[in-house]
Design a protein around this nucleic acid. Sequence first.
DNA 1: AAGGTTATGATAACCGTTTTCATTTTGACA
DNA 2: TGTCAAAATGAAAACGGTTATCATAACCTT
Lengths: 130, 130
Amino acid sequence: MGAGSRYDNEVLSALRRGDRFRSCQEVHALIADARGGPARPPSLSTVYRTLHRLAREGEVDAIHSEEGERLYRRCATSSHHHLLCRACGRAREVPHAREVRAVLARVERLTGFAELSYSLEFSGVCPDCD
Amino acid sequence: MGAGSRYDNEVLSALRRGDRFRSCQEVHALIADARGGPARPPSLSTVYRTLHRLAREGEVDAIHSEEGERLYRRCATSSHHHLLCRACGRAREVPHAREVRAVLARVERLTGFAELSYSLEFSGVCPDCD
DNA sequence: AAGGTTATGATAACCGTTTTCATTTTGACA
DNA sequence: TGTCAAAATGAAAACGGTTATCATAACCTT
Ligand SMILES: [Mn+2]
Ligand SMILES: [Mn+2]
Ligand SMILES: [Zn+2]
Ligand SMILES: [Zn+2]
């Protein structure tokens, strides 16, 4: 199966450093940093390709920043929402909100739309930044 | 007051043509189309500037498409969510979901985050496309 | 080791958006 | 109504993130 990249592990472990969504270029820089020695890091192209594939495969979550940049994060497999600190950027996962089920049913009934899906994201100021 | 542009009306009326979020370039083309004659349409720069300002002033809603493009729409003033048809792109407003209040309170209690805000968007297949 | 397949790196192309700046338009006021 | 400063506009360049291209390198499989 897997048409995996030789850098999957380094990309994923860069994403695990710190609780935040990271851009492709940040991931690239993190990998370069993690290599103290003369070892050559993957090219930016490869990091773009790897993140793109990992997102398609569902290994990482992807969102768009307010500025349109694409950000990635390694997340739990269970259904969850994201909560981002507007001050420091830290991200938390919060458990799926059951209430959404009723809202979806109502929207479906009200509008006649089918195959409804949704996206629910939170932001706030984390305890450290407050 | 307003540091308004001379094209505000044309931009807003372009946004009112059809129930969909539109990109800046689409708005620009719509304005050009709406002028049959030899009248010169505003430049793309001006449309970008005008939409940017209208969004800041709250006159129009802005979202990011899945591809990162910025899309604008003239919306009702009351609190609402968006429901987009994945097939034809049509957008509807659905009334604010009261259940969100309880979810926010729970997330706040659970995480210690303050000043919570959220975004809740829906998509589906509209009756015409179904 | 040979040959075909896939991944990689360097670079250019892409594309939506913002910046720049010279020019035009506007509006306040004499 | 003429004057002039302030604001808006258009054209073009710059920007920044992302994708496409393509020659080279690494990787199998036999
Ligand atoms: Mn997630
Ligand atoms: Mn709206
Ligand atoms: Zn914080
Ligand atoms: Zn539809």
